[in-house]
């Protein structure tokens, strides 16, 4: 294992994170704070409790997930897309480094950024809403698992994209709607039975519910199912990435 190479990529990506602090950290924190102010404090005070939890507190896990998912995809995709775009990928391809080490470096850095972001948003939420975390270890576990999984998805998008437009399409057109429709702001039990069944095809439902369970001990789907579906999604991403490296898709001619 080329640990120095993994460390080099990891450190390089994190240094980019600190260099672009405004874009990578402050912007999502500000936008999430606005959600808390509008949906939590302003509207939430007039909403009924959801599954025994005040609306403002109920949306905390969902809002954290919304940011973590979009930022994970963004971090994961930019990390590998930028070297492809600028041509500096030549250095990675010509280095004595395996595909696993490349993924560990880029996805590891992207996931670290997402986890830091998630924890900062969690801390920020405390300024606006009072909430408790019933299972903090599980909460951290879900946060890490989700960050890694969606950074892997971002990595795939970063290799697939051949322009900045494509890089934005998946997070904006697919992930954000899925997150909004995945029970971030409501319990899926509030939906008519038909739409409840449709919603179960949305992978974000399992992420949000697993995460919410770690906060309040309640979820619309069982925690085992949430964990299993997230792990399944992660495995699917790993399989796609291994195919990408085996075939050299969009990396090697």
């Amino acid at each position: 294992m080329n640990f120095y190479a993994i460390r080099a990529i990891f450190g390089y990506e994190l240094s980019r994170f600190w260099r672009t602090l405004m874009q990578s950290l402050i912007t999502p924190v500000i936008s999430t704070s606005l959600y808390f102010i509008v949906f939590g404090s302003a509207i939430g005070s007039h909403m009924a409790q959801m599954e025994g939890v005040g609306f403002s507190a109920f949306i905390v896990p969902g809002l954290i997930m919304l940011s973590v998912l979009t930022q994970s995809i963004s971090n994961g995709s930019f990390g590998i897309y930028m070297p492809r775009f600028s041509g500096t990928i030549y250095e990675v391809l010509s280095a004595p480094i395996s595909s696993i080490e490349i993924v560990l470096g880029y996805v590891g850095a992207a996931a670290t950024k997402s986890i830091i972001l998630g924890l900062i948003i969690l801390a920020t939420a405390r300024f606006f809403v009072a909430f408790s975390i019933l299972h903090p270890i599980w909460m951290l576990g879900f946060l890490i698992l989700t960050s890694i999984t969606f950074c892997l998805l971002g990595f795939i998008i970063g290799i697939w994209a051949d322009g900045f437009e494509k890089l934005q399409i998946v997070p904006m057109m697919i992930v954000t709607p899925l997150t909004f429709l995945g029970g971030s702001f409501y319990s899926i039990n509030m939906l008519p039975p038909f739409w409840q069944k449709v919603t179960l095809f949305n992978p974000v439902v399992y992420l949000v519910n697993g995460f919410r369970w770690s906060f309040y001990g309640q979820s619309d789907v069982s925690v085992e199912l949430s964990l299993g579906m997230t792990a399944l999604f992660m495995v699917a991403c790993l399989v796609v990435i291994s195919i990408i490296f085996k075939t050299g898709y969009r990396i090697k001619t």
């Binding site: 080329n2 120095y4 190479a5 460390r7 080099a8 990529i9 450190g11 390089y12 240094s15 260099r19 930028m82 600028s86 041509g87 500096t88 030549y90 250095e91 990675v92 280095a95 004595p96 480094i97």
Partner: peptide, 23 residues
């Protein structure tokens, strides 16, 4: 081509290259 991260500092980019080659 002059392909390197234009926003990076000389010292960092050269050290990055050493690291990625496993040194």
């Amino acid at each position: 081509e002059l392909t390197t991260d234009m926003f990076e500092k000389v010292w960092h980019t050269v050290n990055f290259s050493r690291g990625i080659f496993g040194k």
